[in-house]
Design a protein around this nucleic acid. Sequence first.
RNA 1: GGAGGUUUAGCUCAGUUGGUCAGAGCACUUGCCUUACAAGCAAGGGGUCAUAGGUUCGAGCCCUAUAACCUCCACCA
Length: 873
Amino acid sequence: MNDMEKTYNPEFEQRIYDFWLKGKFFESHPNPDKEPFTIMMPPPNITGQLHMGHALDQTLQDILTRFKRMSGYETLWLPGTDHASLATEVKIVNTLREQGISKEDLGRERFLEKAWEWKNKYGGRIVEQIKRLGSSCDWSKEAFTMDQNCSNAVQEAFIRYYKKKLIYRGDRMINWCPRCKTALSDAEVEYEEQQSNLWHYHYPFVDGSGYITIATTRPETMLGDTAVAVNPKDPRYKDKIGKMLKLPLTDREIPLIADDYCEMDFGTGAVKITPAHDPNDFEIGIRHNLPQIRVIADDGTMNENAGIYAGLDRLECRKRVVEDLKAQGYLEKIEPYAHKVGTCYRCHETVESIVSRQWFVKMKPLAEPAIKAVKTKKIEFIPKHFEKTYFNWMENIKDWCISRQLWWGHRIPAYYCDKCGEMYVAKSMPTQCKCGCTTFHQDEDALDTWFSSALWPFSTLGYPKKNKNLSYYYPTSVLVTGYDIIFFWVARMIFSGLEFMEDVPFNEVLIHGIVRDEKGRKMSKSLGNGIDPLELIDKYGADALRFSLTINIAPGSDTRFSKEKLESCRNFCNKLWNASRFVIMNIKKGDELDVIPSRLNVADKWILTRLNSVIKEVTINLNKYDFGVAAAKLYDFTWSEFCDWYIEVSKTSLYSNDENQRKHAISMLTYVLTTILKLLHPIIPFITEEIYSKYHKKGDAIMVQDWPSYNRKYIFHKEEKAFEDLIELVTSIRNTRASMNVVPSKKIHIQVLTADNNLFKKFEIYLDKLAGVESVKYLNSADEADKSAVALVTALAQVYIPMGELVDPAKEKERLEKELAQAEGDIAHSENLLNNPSFVQRAPQKVIDTEKAKLEAAQNKYKKIKEQLDALK
RNA sequence: GGAGGUUUAGCUCAGUUGGUCAGAGCACUUGCCUUACAAGCAAGGGGUCAUAGGUUCGAGCCCUAUAACCUCCACCA
């Protein structure tokens, strides 16, 4: 029966995963008799490599999925990947560049062929890596944001938005990445603090009446200035408003205008206005009807409007402009200044604000119901405080720029007449324009990746086609993700779901933190502090990694990864392995397994009561997504109660000559072990499945067993207390042995004075194994005790251990006095409370009762210790 | 400039509606190859729960300030 190795070795994980796949245990089908439980996996980028963030995200989702599956839900965890428009395109462009090819050389179609080639070759990597974690998702439904389903959904959504006038095309201020050469949404810009300068220089009035000094962080944009603005109330400039200024380094003249936007106390109070390259200036430009002069080209160099500076990179131009201003006497001072600069979230190049013709989603009408859905608790964030983050973003949202100057992605379904330029938004190219022309060209741009991700909860289920999956699984149950993509993704799924499905995409959003390194730093490529989960799995096993990511985490907070924690979890697996190995090696043919015998001893009743309590707590905590607590409870129960005490105690039965006792012990041990394995399964699926298979029918899978339920029938509070008293007694004896340096092999004899000899006799058989007690002599009174014995006072009994010369009366007296003092302290504490009238009046009866019981116990103990002390004298 | 979070043992973190809540793992000390496990067993040391007030019969837990650190959002040139 026992082919288990002595040390836990997770090499069986691959075999177990194959077993699950073969059994189709992960697959889900709409079942009207069951309630669905659905999770949509946040699709990792096809360019991605598994990192610790994925590992955490996957583990939590898998725990939920496995838990709900065992709890009787029709469980679907739908996996997939994201085409990651920008990230993938950059990757392919780089690969091509190494071969000396540019994407323009290749042309759109050939480029896309290459991209699909790349996707087919590498896009599955991350999926294989996810499988190594043990994720129990339904691979038969695996989706990709650019597969037919999702593309249909994207087209449908775009067209419906457009018809409702929620998508429009226009010239707006957008964020432009000069390296990626595409527009970016506001969410895709990351702000980084940079050390820069505030350059002060002046613009002279045309009429020769002096000059006005402005301060800027971006001198090169002055070439596109079309005004200088001051606050209308600013006394310094009040009478000069409307006058014309000469723009240095150019031959242009610009007006001095008044706008409330200008703060009087910042810089010089005067702001140069560049409507084509700054979002605020853009607004001011519109208010004052100023011309927009673009001076920066798409590639980040200065364009023809920059005169002699044309062709220079914008940063080079900055230097030259400053030099020239200085040479011509305009520059006044340069002040060091730290400010935040927007950078591209992919390549971290400084983004430029540029006025450009792009596609936008009108956000206000969409945000409103999305806010309401959370306010009315149709969607709940866990932890709740993330709702504030969500509201803050949604309430201040601006229109979403969705067009990208990329090829890899969903091409915008807009077509333009070759002759008159009339635009048609449709699923396919129109055949005839109203001008009569029959040739068209499609919009060159692709959509923001997040446009398709936003549809994920229903596009993966076949939307826009009405079908069984969609109606059964939507809305999904819970979305599990990190707080870093609340804006990118969660918020957008919410308004998209409400818009197209007329229902929320999920009922709950479980937000978890990020995995940091042992110093608390974010893991990042640039820091080089990333840890490869695959290496950890190779060395310690996926179960150990999963457990280490689960135990003691608090919802929503970041967690630090440490090797020590991982090792302790691996050790736990080893412990579980060996405890199981022990139980299994004692199973004999014909033994009844996994059943609770009809007659139970005190130890059985204790472990069953404890087990029931653990079932209850683990179930409650998993239901409220408190994985850290659930894992910790299981860790403690398995190790400190089942292994340390119950198994130890049951050895007495297993090794006895009484075959009935052995059978009884095996039934109980397998029952408790199997229950533990089930409870642990969602967290550490591989090892629990492997162990389960060792003593169950071939093909039986623990992953589809029923979740253990709390059973009131097996709650025995009296025996629970009695066994805990035994633990106290044994610990007390061990403590004495240790402090007296009695080697474990040396047996001792004890004398016992107890109120319940029968109860103690039930425990007597354990004492040899647990405390090295060879014989017990029952006393009728303390007087009969050996006078030179060490005396222990416990709830169960007074125990006298004759130690012969080993006992130093002085030391023994000291020990007893210490215990006496402690008992005195306890008594004083309780008495204080109970003598306090307001406590007795206001505290609940339950609290008062326990306090009274405490007092009584302490008084008892005090009395007995006192007797010992007196006897010593 | 707003918003949120964190602060508990040497380290990493748990502490559910205020009433055995002062805990776990690792580290540390001591003794053990006790026939499941040295990735182990047993015993132990170690914390004014950031600071100062307040509410309460009772406060890591609730309230108010303060400090330190972290994160997100925001157009101050």
